[in-house]
């Protein structure tokens, strides 16, 4: 596949001339303006460059030879990949059942069964980003605990979108951590995106988010991505702050995507995180970062099983292009290979 098609706002002056623009199937979309009337907005399908999972996921099972008698050993290995005791048990149970049914005996057959089991559980119909042209500007809210890579993820996303000639606004609503605004400013500059900064130090993040969306509407931007401060999920007041950011933004326009950034090294606490953020921020997708290390992020399996939240993106490095769309096949094959 050469690229991925998404709908962006048609720019009347430029037409369809930018690189990466493939087709111009004019898709009228409805957009509600602030006074409640519905305005038709021209949108166009745009091809965005495909990012590759260059190094892929490290194999988890490289040290074990599969045979019908040692399938119980897989449980320990899955546990070491942060799948958790429960999930690991369930996966092995399912693999054993199928192996018996199909009388699978060779290593290749058994591996294929494990891949199938993982893919079936992790493939999600809604794995792509919601950039379907129903409303402009799209609004992405990026949330997560401290130090998972929210800002870096936003930098990468913004660059990817500007590469496809998208008009991107970033809202620097992490007004808490020291120099967080400068950090996102550096990324915004690298990505060629506009940045809405807080006017004063420690400004209410919700108001920064509001201003970012306002600016996006005024400047006819395609998308606004809002960075938020890292927060531990057991801090009720900080989680309430997220709900407030949501409410305030939604006064202007709907939020298209709420991305929970999750560090692949996170253990079982990842599920607790996902639950808490799903509750207060309505998470629509997960970005699994730092997958270039030795961690496999197995907790996303349980998160998808329990909460039905799909992994949408993965981060694989500190470079601006180091991310990819999550693909259950690719992920499972990488693990099992």
């Amino acid at each position: 596949m050469a690229g991925l098609l998404f709908w962006k706002k048609k720019q009347p002056a430029e037409g369809a001339s930018g690189p990466g623009v493939e087709s111009t199937a004019n898709q009228p979309a409805a957009q509600a303006t602030l006074d409640g009337t519905v305005e038709r907005v021209e949108s166009e399908a745009v091809q965005l460059p495909r990012r590759n999972l260059a190094r892929g996921v490290r194999s988890l099972f490289s040290k074990v030879k599969f045979n019908p008698d040692n399938l119980d050993d897989l449980e320990d290995i899955l546990i070491q990949g942060d799948f958790g005791v429960l999930a690991a048990g369930n996966i092995v149970f399912e693999v054993k059942k199928r192996a018996k049914l199909t009388a699978a005996a060779t290593e290749a057959e058994l591996k294929q069964i494990l891949v199938d089991v993982l893919v079936e559980a992790m493939d999600h119909p809604d794995k792509s980003l919601n950039l379907d042209g129903s409303k402009f500007p799209y609004v992405f809210l990026v949330v997560g605990v401290n130090g998972v890579g929210k800002t870096t993820t936003i930098g990468k996303l913004a660059r990817w979108l500007t590469d496809g000639e998208w008009n991107v606004v970033i809202g620097a609503a992490d007004t808490f951590r020291a120099a967080a605004v400068d950090q996102i400013a550096t990324w915004a500059e690298r990505a060629g995106a506009k940045l809405v900064r807080p006017k004063t130090e420690g400004q209410d993040p919700a108001s920064v988010a509001f201003e970012a969306v306002e600016m996006a509407v005024q400047t006819n931007a395609d998308i606004v991505i809002i960075d938020t401060a890292g927060r531990l999920q057991n801090k009720a007041d900080l989680m309430d702050e997220l709900s407030k950011i949501r409410r305030v933004v939604e006064k202007q326009t709907a939020i298209t995507e709420v991305l929970l950034v999750l560090d692949a090294t996170t253990g079982q606490n990842g599920l607790v995180q996902a639950k808490a953020f799903a509750d207060s921020a309505n998470v629509t997708g997960i970005v699994l970062t730092k997958l270039d290390g030795t961690a496999r992020g197995g907790i996303v399996y349980t998160i998808q099983q329990e909460l039905g939240i799909p992994v949408k993106l993965v981060g694989v490095g500190e470079g601006i292009n180091d991310f990819a769309f999550f693909d259950a096949q690719e992920f499972a094959r990488g693990l099992v290979s």
């Binding site: 130090g147 692949a264 090294t265 996170t266 253990g267 290390g293 030795t294 961690a295």
Partner: peptide
């Protein structure tokens, strides 16, 4: 990071 999972072993060794 107190939230680190099983990878703690690899990281600590490294």
């Amino acid at each position: 990071d107190a939230m680190l999972g099983q990878d703690a072993v690899n990281v600590a060794k490294a």
